[in-house]
Amino acid sequence: MLVVLETRSKHLISPQLTPQALKARKNATSLSEPPGHRHGVLGSGPDLHLLIVGDSSAAGVGAPRQREALSGQLTQALAESYRVSWRLVARTGSTTRTTLPLLRAQDVQDTDVALVVLGVNDVTSQIPLKRLLHHRAELYRRLFEDWGAKRVIATGIPPIDKFPLLPNPLRWLLGLQARRFDHALARQAASMGVDYMPFDVPLTPQMMAEDGFHPGPNAYHLIGKKVAAQILHR
């Protein structure tokens, strides 16, 4: 993998970082997606149909079981107020582009809230920002139009320069790119009626998984609570 730092006029390719990038990618994929249900019904009260779409963080990598991953933490928090019918469509390594065919392969169901958890792999895959925004717009349109989502919520890209796994200067370069992508995605979301939630969970060692790249159960707990509060707020 080559690291590309985009500027307004050109791409700065850093082939000397290839060994760092290859080693980081290998270590980042060392953890498996946790076992557990990927759909179900939980709680009592008004019906809430929830769809979670995304990458390894959506799939719960870094947690021992789905119950302690994002889907479990979020649905448990929402189940205090709703009867939650939920579904998880996520895969390790997914980018916004590769999520589109994955979503098309699913049986469409009524959706009140769709949660999109993507971004890190968009940065590391070196996709040009303009193309990323095109794919993300298509994803949002599919969720609104095909799935009938009443609300779409997207989580922001975490500060990659805080990931313990990554060495410098690779960490610095990817962190810079992540911030640039995150700002652009936030502006796009606002223009399309999507709730964009900046990533504000501290990435301390206690919050990270053992691989130093994915969230751990403590981080999933906080993220689940924050997303639940965002949903309950409206």
Results as ranks from 00 to 15, higher is better:
residue 5 L to W: 11
residue 18 T to W: 05
residue 152 V to E: 05
residue 142 R to L: 14
residue 178 A to M: 08
residue 91 R to T: 10
residue 100 L to D: 00
residue 105 A to V: 12
residue 15 P to M: 10
residue 43 G to F: 04
residue 180 R to W: 09
residue 190 A to P: 10
residue 12 L to A: 06
residue 182 D to C: 06
residue 57 S to N: 10
residue 170 L to T: 01
residue 185 L to R: 02
residue 100 L to K: 07
residue 57 S to W: 03
residue 160 I to H: 01
residue 130 K to F: 13
residue 92 T to E: 11
residue 184 A to W: 14
residue 225 K to S: 07
residue 23 K to W: 10
residue 180 R to V: 03
residue 225 K to R: 12
residue 106 Q to D: 09
residue 132 L to T: 15
residue 3 V to H: 03
residue 97 R to I: 08
residue 8 R to E: 12
residue 142 R to P: 10
residue 1 M to S: 03
residue 121 N to D: 15
residue 114 A to N: 14
residue 18 T to N: 02
residue 145 E to W: 09
residue 215 P to G: 03
residue 218 N to G: 04
residue 177 Q to L: 01
residue 38 R to D: 11
residue 39 H to N: 12
residue 161 D to H: 01
residue 213 F to L: 05
residue 206 Q to M: 13
residue 180 R to N: 12
residue 21 A to L: 00
residue 223 I to D: 01
residue 169 P to L: 01
residue 213 F to S: 04
residue 71 S to G: 03
residue 115 L to K: 05
residue 170 L to G: 07
residue 106 Q to S: 13
residue 219 A to S: 12
residue 131 R to G: 14
residue 45 G to W: 05
residue 170 L to K: 01
residue 4 V to S: 11
residue 159 P to I: 00
residue 99 T to P: 06
residue 101 P to W: 08
residue 169 P to H: 06
residue 40 G to A: 06
residue 181 F to G: 09
residue 112 D to R: 07
residue 26 K to F: 01
residue 198 P to V: 03
residue 139 L to E: 14
residue 131 R to S: 15
residue 206 Q to A: 15
residue 128 P to I: 11
residue 77 A to I: 01
residue 88 L to P: 01
residue 184 A to C: 04
residue 186 A to L: 11
